[in-house]
């Protein structure tokens, strides 16, 4: 464990908590893409499938973190699609998730480190996570704005994988550890946030709201 991965995971936890708080406190999921949350839930379930395959003692934090990620993302989907369904902005959350899932699944079968079920599920989860934020960014571009709290969520979500890139640089340099698939997908994922990061740093930090030219 290094400082970059630690802060990356903390940033990821913060993102999940910010979103849950926003939906719970405002009792509304306006401006939140349900599809992105579904894709994240799929990512966690396919990536941490080992939790279901054999019971693991919960003593170590990593297993607890995996359970937190899975349960929090499933609970977020429950809030969006059931509890606060009336506030779900289905019309603007219109990016076809199939266009993300099918290519990620296909690519996972073609490019992976080992052709076995668990490894392909993990690879699929990595590829899907890289593009899972697209429906959310698409929704913001359609509505032309993002609530400040949603911007904070996106900043934390984007920072998590950006910090993981620093973690991979650190591990390459000190542990000569390289996981090409995770690195390439992580770089693609972070690049997708660049436009948002620019808007966040130039606007939200100054207290303005993000309003895209509609």
């Amino acid at each position: 464990m290094n400082i970059f991965r630690l802060f990356g995971d903390l940033s990821h936890l913060a993102a999940i908590a910010i979103l849950l708080l926003k939906i719970w406190k405002t009792r509304s999921c306006a401006g939140v893409s349900g599809k992105t949350q579904l894709l994240f839930a799929v990512c966690f379930i396919t990536r941490y499938i080992d939790l279901f395959l054999h019971f693991v003692s919960l003593y170590n934090t990593e297993k607890v973190m995996k359970l937190i990620y899975i349960s929090a993302s499933v609970f977020t989907c429950y809030l969006i699609f059931f509890k606060f369904k009336a506030t779900y902005d289905g019309n603007h959350d219109s990016m076809r998730a199939e266009f993300l899932i099918v290519p990620a699944a296909g690519l996972a079968c073609l490019i992976n480190t080992k052709f076995d079920a668990i490894e392909i599920l993990w690879t699929f989860s990595i590829y899907l996570e890289a593009v899972a934020i697209l429906p959310q960014l698409f929704l913001i571009s359609k509505t032309g704005e993002a609530e400040t709290i949603t911007s904070h969520y996106l900043f934390a979500q984007g920072s998590y994988r950006a910090l993981y890139i620093l973690n991979w640089i650190y591990r390459y340099h000190y542990e000569s550890h390289v996981d090409t698939i995770a690195i390439v997908a992580g770089v693609v994922q972070t690049i997708l946030y660049c436009d948002f990061f620019y808007l966040y740093i130039t606007k939200v930090v100054k207290g303005q709201k993000i309003v895209l030219p509609a």
Partner: peptide, 10 residues
């Protein structure tokens, strides 16, 4: 190494 089945990152 990449082929390690057990992934040590979240």
């Amino acid at each position: 190494d990449e082929t390690s089945a057990v992934k040590d990152e979240l």
